[in-house]
Amino acid sequence: MVSLKDIAAACGVSVATVSKALNGHKEISGPTTGRILAAAAKLGYMPNSAARALKTNRTYNLGVLFVDETHRGLTHEYFSLVLESFKVEAEANGYDITFINHNIGNRTATYLEHCRYRGVDGVVIACVDFFDPQVVELVQSDIPVVTIDYTFDNHVSVLSDNICGMRDLVTYVASMGHRRIAFIHGEKTSVTTNRLTSFYRTALELGLKIPDEYVCEASYHNPQKTAACTRALLALPQPPTCILFPDDFSYIGGMNVLQEAGLRVPQDISVAGYDGIYLSQVLSPRLTTLQQDTAALGRMAAQQLIDLIERPKTTLPGSTVVPGRLLKGATVQRIGKSFICCTNIDF
């Protein structure tokens, strides 16, 4: 293994000078620093992470707590895109990534114990049961934490703008003449609460009446439950003319039911999804959906977490809200003249 002493000998300088140059100290001249960096690269020098941790009291390692109850893991397209963006931003700032779990060797551990065992400098938390006592314990510890799509009091979070997203989606559907709009939503989470509240609020503002039976609870990323809700909606004496699904992947369950019933999209019934994943735009017809900005969510989560770690005294708790974008697709049919005179959405 190449040491600082080897670089010093190759450059004819002291070990202290090499150390300062590699750490960006301005007291070392530009030409000397350049010569030392070139020699380090040529010799294949790699800093010792354990030694660096002892010196800086940091491991440059970020924990990722991601528990997908649908057991799709990193095949979960929406969160995999968020985490990929988080990873890219973290690595650009010199940090590595470690996934947090319940295992330390053959022993079961809490999330906090695993974080301490791995020595992470901070943790990003996404797609978990935020009411889990172990999650709460981690959030309340001295380890810097940033949450995605959930807010704890006096902590830092990054949120997709589900309120405006649902408002834009409902407003667009209504602008296409639909008054009988149903909403199949996901399980009870803060994301669901925001979307459901925005759905009802927007409907009220637009003068739409939403019967209780038009709102059904399924689960995110669960086509089977979405299929069951779709069947129930179609069996109503007056079925909806448009169905909003909890996410693009779950729409597949509804799509299968509509096909079984001999209904064409959008000629016989209109539909819309949520997330804007790649799959939604290669289906035929292209799914009308609200695309969440996964790149910005992951990038901002990494930036906020690194700020908490490196500049804790100047980083304020709070939420960063990331707007989404309506993708009109081809699954919402115009069924009459729009009754909306004006809107904040640019069509």
Score class of each variant (00 low, 15 high):
5 K>P: 11
238 Q>D: 06
11 C>W: 02
91 E>A: 03
50 A>F: 11
313 K>Y: 00
119 G>F: 02
285 P>H: 03
88 V>D: 00
245 F>P: 14
90 A>G: 09
291 Q>V: 10
36 I>C: 06
179 R>C: 08
284 S>L: 03
322 V>M: 10
343 T>M: 12
219 S>R: 12
243 I>S: 12
342 C>Y: 11
269 I>M: 03
123 V>P: 05
51 A>D: 05
211 P>C: 07
193 T>M: 04
113 E>Y: 00
241 T>W: 03
127 C>P: 03
88 V>R: 09
328 K>E: 03
199 F>I: 06
79 F>R: 06
66 F>N: 09
336 G>T: 00
239 P>A: 06
271 V>S: 01
104 I>Q: 12
268 D>N: 07
284 S>D: 10
268 D>A: 09
181 I>Y: 11
333 Q>T: 13
91 E>H: 12
157 S>K: 09
252 I>V: 10
118 R>C: 05
340 I>K: 08
222 N>D: 15
178 H>D: 13
122 G>I: 01
85 S>K: 00
87 K>G: 02
239 P>E: 00
134 Q>L: 13
1 M>Q: 08
185 H>S: 14
66 F>S: 10
32 T>Q: 08
68 D>F: 00
285 P>G: 14
326 L>M: 05
50 A>E: 04
334 R>P: 14
38 A>F: 00
55 K>N: 04
154 N>L: 10
199 F>P: 00
243 I>P: 15
11 C>N: 10
205 E>Y: 05
100 I>N: 08
100 I>P: 11
67 V>D: 04
75 T>V: 03
34 G>C: 08
288 T>P: 00
47 P>F: 00
185 H>L: 11
237 P>V: 05
313 K>H: 01
